[in-house]
Structures are given as structure tokens and as C-alpha cells.
């Protein structure tokens, strides 16, 4: 079996953002459950946090393909 170690490295690198995104949405769901009327305000904050955490995984996948 042949392949690039880059992909294993990317898999490891995706753990961090994965945990981060999980924490962000856990907090968001918690907040909405406690105070449903705050949903529209919390939503944009949650999406922003999600986008920032996801950027790390995105940079990882770009580098996994670029570096050989």
C-alpha cells in the first residue's frame, strides 16, 4: 500500500479544530437552551467562532496537498 504521510498528518491536525468546533457549538446550544430569545445574537457569534476554528483545518488541508 502506497500513499502520502501528509494525509495522516492532516488527520492528526484536524483533531484540534474538531474539538474546538465541538466546544463552540456545545456552548451555543447551551446558550440557546437557557435563553431561547438570544438565539439570533448567539448564532452569528457561533458561526464566527466556527469559521475561525475551521480556518486551521482548512490551512491544514491546503498544506497537505501542497507540500510533497
Amino acid at each position: 500500500m502506497t500513499g502520502s504521510l501528509n494525509m495522516i498528518g492532516y488527520g492528526l491536525a484536524a483533531i484540534g479544530p474538531g474539538i474546538g468546533i465541538g466546544l463552540i457549538f456545545a456552548a451555543y446550544i447551551n446558550g440557546v437552551a437557557r435563553q431561547p430569545e438570544a438565539q439570533s445574537r448567539l448564532q452569528s457569534i457561533a458561526i464566527l467562532g466556527f469559521a475561525l476554528a475551521e480556518a486551521l483545518a482548512i490551512i491544514g488541508i491546503a498544506l497537505a496537498f501542497v507540500l510533497n
Binding site: 469559521a51 475551521e54 480556518a55 482548512i58 490551512i59 488541508i61 491546503a62
Partner: peptide, 11 residues
């Protein structure tokens, strides 16, 4: 990051 996020997700 704006461009890479869109590109990498679609890709």
C-alpha cells in the same frame, strides 16, 4: 482565509 475556506471546503 476567506478565499481558502471557500476553496478548500468545495475542493
Amino acid at each position: 482565509t476567506l478565499a481558502l475556506r471557500l476553496f478548500a471546503n468545495m475542493f
